[in-house]
């Protein structure tokens, strides 16, 4: 089992400034899954509670001279502490003499001090003329063939796309709003309609607090808004759309919703919300453009899946 590559400048800044701060908010520990073509950071894929997040990069977007081999179809996965990974990357950047040398990343097994058992590390190595800096980030034992198979399967299942996606309103203000909404209740109903409406609502025995965003861009299945609904209240309009089968509603945890919005730390160019088939989960897909264009950067993908709360449980 071997993995060795050089991080590109672009890859370093992408990880250090955008991706790792965002993923760190999703949870300290994640799986890093490396294949011949991709590097994928996965949160909560093997345990179903909590927000699942999937950040996938083509290996070229992060690495140069990418070499990977394993007996498992050249696939390696392990869990890693993102805080340590982020810290290692940051600290090596402060000491590295950038102009001359590249930052190598590789999988090693070392004997830690006071131990007889060799343990696996992800090692960052920067060599300068006068000095070399090495950072070892401890990782879990690589996943077994069976576990890796399960991870691969979950990853495939997580690629399912909702029938309708609506473009989220501006993320910072949405985040700001949901942050304040958090104090009022714990469960949020999220409705998405084919007309391009996104309706968020917290409702308890004491209060109903909601926000309706209309005329958002729709991807996938769409429908024309019903003219007679125009002057109704947001709540009634939403109820009617659900009855008509033009909208779906799911209940999610406000905390989860807020957490997924923290992915905006990765500075995506926009985001889309959708509800999976049969209301299985709420999906938010972050979109990145190729810098300076309005074209989707296909080498990066980031999306979250929020578990739906059983209406009976609350």
């Amino acid at each position: 089992m071997k993995f060795k590559a050089f991080l590109t400048d672009n890859g370093i800044s992408l990880l250090e400034k955008r991706i790792l701060p965002a993923l760190d908010k999703m949870g300290k520990i994640c799986h890093l899954y490396l294949t011949r073509d991709h590097a994928v950071f996965l949160h909560n894929l093997l345990n179903s509670d909590g927000v699942q997040s999937i950040a996938q990069f083509s290996q070229q977007s992060l690495f140069q001279d990418y070499r990977i081999s394993s007996q498992n179809d050249d696939r390696i996965a392990f869990s890693i502490d993102l805080t340590l990974l982020h810290r290692a990357l940051r600290s090596i950047l402060t000491v590295q003499d950038f102009n001359h040398h590249r930052l190598q990343i590789k999988l090693v097994k070392k004997l830690p001090p006071h131990s007889t058992q060799p343990t696996p590390f992800l090692t960052f190595e920067a060599k300068g003329y006068k000095s070399a800096v090495v950072h070892d980030v401890p990782i879990s034992k690589p996943l077994s063939r069976a576990d890796l198979q399960e991870l691969q399967l979950s990853l495939q299942n997580a690629q399912e796309m909702p029938a309708t996606l609506v473009k989220a309103p501006e993320l910072t203000s949405l985040q700001n709003f949901v942050d304040r909404m958090k104090h009022v209740g714990e469960v949020m109903g999220v409705s998405i309609s084919k007309y391009g409406d996104l309706h968020l609502k917290i409702s308890t025995s004491l209060i109903a607090l909601g926000a309706e965003f209309r005329k958002l861009m729709v991807l996938g299945e769409r429908a024309d808004p019903v003219a007679e609904d125009r002057d109704l209240s947001a709540q009634t309009r939403n109820e009617r759309a659900v009855q008509r089968g033009d909208a779906m509603t799911v209940d999610v945890s406000v905390k989860h919703f807020f957490k997924s919005l923290q992915c905006s730390l990765a500075k995506p160019d926009c985001a889309f919300y959708g509800i999976a088939q049969h209301g299985a989960c709420l999906i938010v897909i972050f979109q990145f453009f190729i810098p300076g264009t309005r074209q989707t950067d296909k080498s990066i993908s980031l999306h979250c899946r929020l578990p739906v709360l059983d209406p009976g449980s609350n």
């Binding site: 209060i207 109903a208 607090l209 909601g210 926000a211 309706e212 965003f213 209309r214 947001a234």
Partner: peptide, 10 residues
Amino acid sequence: PDACIYAEIR
């Protein structure tokens, strides 16, 4: 015109 926040407090 396309965004509305509302609340009903008991």
